[in-house]
Amino acid sequence: MDFLPTLTPEQLTAINLSLRIGFTATLCSLPFAVLVAFLLARGNFPGKTLLDAVVHLPLVLPPVVTGLILLLLFGRRGPIGAFLYEHFNFTFAFRWTGAALAAGVMGFPLMVRAIRLSIEAVDPRLEQAAATLGAPPLAVFFLVTAPLAAPGLLAGAVLGFAKALGEFGATITFVSNIPGETRTIPAEIYLLTQTPGGDQDAVVMSAVAAALAIGALVASEFLAKRMRIETRGLSS
């Protein structure tokens, strides 16, 4: 079991960084994903198809293109990036926050899809029942829709997290491959494969990546099962 000690400090940094980026990307994009998923599931407004298409873009575009678009928008000289730097002295460019942004954007369509499905599966008449009892829309969402869609919300979050851990193309295009800042697990693996004699380390890192992804899935499956038991009242 002398598996962990074989990891180099660089590799540990990459793992640490990947986890931080994954959690940040997931937590920050979750509220937006829930909002967009709710609009797509329940809303009926002009431009719904367009919103749906835009949300799905990162899924169908080459990641490099997504990275490039992020660079053009959020780079130091991009319209949004320049605004943020000028007014808040904040920048995504070549920072781990930029990697989190790229990971969040890439995972967004996956999150929205999972959450949308679970919201659509909630019987709208339960929401109507809540409305006839006098509950305002936000209360209906937080007390009825969200708890019933919780397993889907969780599944969406886990998918987003797993995607964030594995994101490579958009990240490297947007914020490059800077050790300790934007060198995530995939970037580290890529670098190792390019280094003579790095193959074995690359395999070890790949195993770590696989373990993290599978761990996330197992944890979410466990939580989802508990939620379902709660909902159906089978625990007693």
Binding site: Q128, A131, T132, G134, E230
Partner: peptide
């Protein structure tokens, strides 16, 4: 709107909140 009507509705299949 429904929530301000003070009209109670008993649905055919009750529609109790399952959670």
């Amino acid at each position: 709107p429904a929530r301000k009507r003070g009209v109670g509705l008993v649905f055919q299949d009750a529609q109790l909140f399952p959670h």
